Simulated assay, not measured.
Amino acid sequence: MNELLAIVAHANRCRSSYRWHKARNGRPVIAGVTLHGTRTDIGNAQTIWTGMETSRALMWRVRARRTPNAKENAAFRDGYYKGFAHEIARRYAALERDMETPRRAANSS
Rank of each mutant, 00 (worst) to 15 (best):
K82M: 14
S55L: 12
T34C: 11
R19G: 00
A6Y: 04
T38G: 09
H86T: 10
M59T: 09
R77Q: 11
I88S: 02
R15P: 00
A45V: 06
R104V: 11
A57V: 05
N12L: 05
Y92P: 00
A57Q: 14
S108E: 07
T34E: 11
N69M: 04
S55K: 14
R24A: 14
I42D: 01
A9S: 04
D41Q: 10
Y18D: 03
A85Q: 03
P102N: 03
D78Y: 09
E72C: 07
I30H: 01
A74Y: 15
V8N: 00
A106F: 14
N73F: 01
A9P: 02
R27T: 09
F76M: 06
F76I: 09
I88W: 08
R19V: 02
G43V: 01
N25C: 06
T34L: 13
V33I: 12
I88L: 12
A94S: 06
T40G: 00
G51E: 09
V29R: 10
H36E: 06
R13N: 09
N73E: 07
R19C: 03
I48V: 15
F84G: 06
D41Y: 04
G79F: 08
Q46M: 10
G26I: 06
T54C: 04
I42S: 02
T101S: 08
I30G: 00
